[in-house]
Simulated scan of single mutants.
Amino acid sequence: MPIAILVVGIAGMLGIKATAQDSEEKKPVDTRPNISYQAIQPTDHTVIISGNGEIKPKESTALSAQVSGEVESLHPNFVAGGLVKRGDVLFTIEKDAYEAAVWQAESELSRAQAALIEEQARANVAKREAKNLPKVNVTDLYLRKPQLLSAQAAVKSAQARLKLAQRDLNDTTVRAPYDALIIMRNIGVGQFVNRGIEVARLNNIETAELVFPVAGFDAVFLPDNIVGANATLHARNIDKTTRKGSITRDLGIVDSNTRMSQLVVEINDPYGLISDAEPLKFGTFVDVQFKGITIENVYKLPQTLVNNRRVWVVDNENKLRIKNVTVLREEGKYFYIDSGLEPNDKVVMTLPEYPLDGMEVKITNDKNEVVATPTASDSQSE
């Protein structure tokens, strides 16, 4: 009995195994790789051009004394790093000698004017007397015309001396020519300064500039009239300050080393003195972006889907096809393609490990999703 039971069990196992093998051999196996795709549409794209550079003052002034004398007073902010407003008195020079010069010039002018009045009266008398004389005896000298001209010239000379004396007196008070950051000061109270000696250096903080290069592949996308275009600046600092500016000019040269052209962006009130804007200090390195021209009928694809200027698509028979494309522009993580693709092409998003042209594939996505049309703001944020 044990032997019989063993034989029956072995026979049953062999039968079950044979039946399973027959079932597996009959069931077909789908070896097609799985892929997903997105249907694409052409769109218009506004090019975003980027650059970077250092914030610098638009204007820097070496301040000099216009008159000689002893320094009497200094503005409390007239120190390195101080900020002063346009018209603030930076320092004053002793003015006694210059006030005396003005008074002296005024007295000389008064004497010259008195002499002119006297000479004018004499000329009028001579003119009345000349009416009773023969014309041959009436000369310019008799009418005192030379004396009158000399008196008039003396008045003008005295006026000029007074004007110069008044200018020197005014120059004893030195004011800020603009809203300024004090970079350096080398005078003190009680120090004697000479005319023309540099006493300080100021940077204009009413306006700052950023000079940045534009590469050749970006230059072809510049608008015809770039002056006045708005630009966005992102500072590479802890606060990641963002400011607005405008492009004011092209320097008109191509750098001999980099072969790049140079554009200038102007930023108003960089230190935020007259607005609530975040300060953007001189020397800060920033990234700048602005809009270029709009390119039409292009396809926006992630760079990961483009390999050696080729894109994989799936045809209506669910077979892989490869297309050669022309990349018009690269921005961020995307390529913008202007030829090689057609509307509604199904771009493969997930390729098999070893793709082949003509390979049959199995579609895993149920929806024929269309690549979103990018807007100018989307592109800028990218």
Score class of each variant (00 low, 15 high):
Phe212Tyr: 14
Phe212Val: 02
Phe212Glu: 01
Val214Glu: 10
Ala215Tyr: 04
Leu222Gly: 05
Asn225Glu: 11
Ile226Leu: 08
Ile226Val: 14
Ile226Gln: 00
Val227Arg: 04
Ala229Leu: 12
Thr232Ala: 12
Ala235Arg: 04
Ala235Ile: 02
Ala235Cys: 03
Arg236Glu: 13
Arg236His: 12
Arg236Pro: 00
Asn237Gly: 10
Asn237Thr: 06
Asp239Ile: 06
Lys240Asp: 13
Thr241Lys: 07
Thr242Ala: 13
Lys244Ser: 15
Ile247Cys: 02
Arg249Cys: 01
Gly252Arg: 12
Asp255Val: 02
Ser256Pro: 00
Ser256Tyr: 06
Asn257Trp: 07
Asn257Asp: 07
Thr258Pro: 04
Arg259Cys: 06
Arg259Ile: 05
Ser261Leu: 15
Leu263Val: 10
Leu263Tyr: 11
Leu263His: 08
Asn268Ser: 14
Asn268Gly: 12
Asp269His: 04
Tyr271Ala: 03
Gly272Tyr: 05
Leu273Trp: 04
Leu273Gly: 00
Leu273Phe: 06
Ile274Ser: 06
Asp276Lys: 11
Asp276Ala: 11
Asp276Leu: 09
Ala277Trp: 10
Ala277Cys: 09
Glu278Ala: 13
Leu280Ile: 04
Lys281Gln: 12
Gly283Ile: 05
Gly283Trp: 12
Gly283Tyr: 10
Thr284Ile: 04
Thr284Trp: 02
Thr284Glu: 08
Val286Ala: 05
Gln289Cys: 12
Phe290His: 09
Gly292Asp: 09
Ile293Arg: 00
Thr294Leu: 04
Thr294Ala: 06
Ile295Lys: 09
Glu296Asn: 08
Asn297Leu: 07
Asn297Glu: 10
Val298Ser: 00
Tyr299Gln: 07
Leu301Ala: 01
Leu301Lys: 02
Pro302Tyr: 05
Gln303Lys: 12
Gln303His: 01
Thr304Val: 11
Leu305Gly: 01
Leu305Lys: 06
Leu305Ser: 06
Asn307Leu: 13
Asn307Arg: 15
Arg309Tyr: 13
Arg310Pro: 03
Arg310Gly: 08
Arg310Asn: 14
Val311Lys: 02
Val313Asn: 01
Val313Ser: 03
Val313Met: 08
Val314Tyr: 11
Val314Lys: 05
Asn318Ser: 15
Asn318Gly: 15
Lys319Arg: 15
Lys319Ile: 08
Leu320Gly: 00
Lys323Gly: 03
Asn324Leu: 13
Val325Phe: 04
Val325Thr: 00
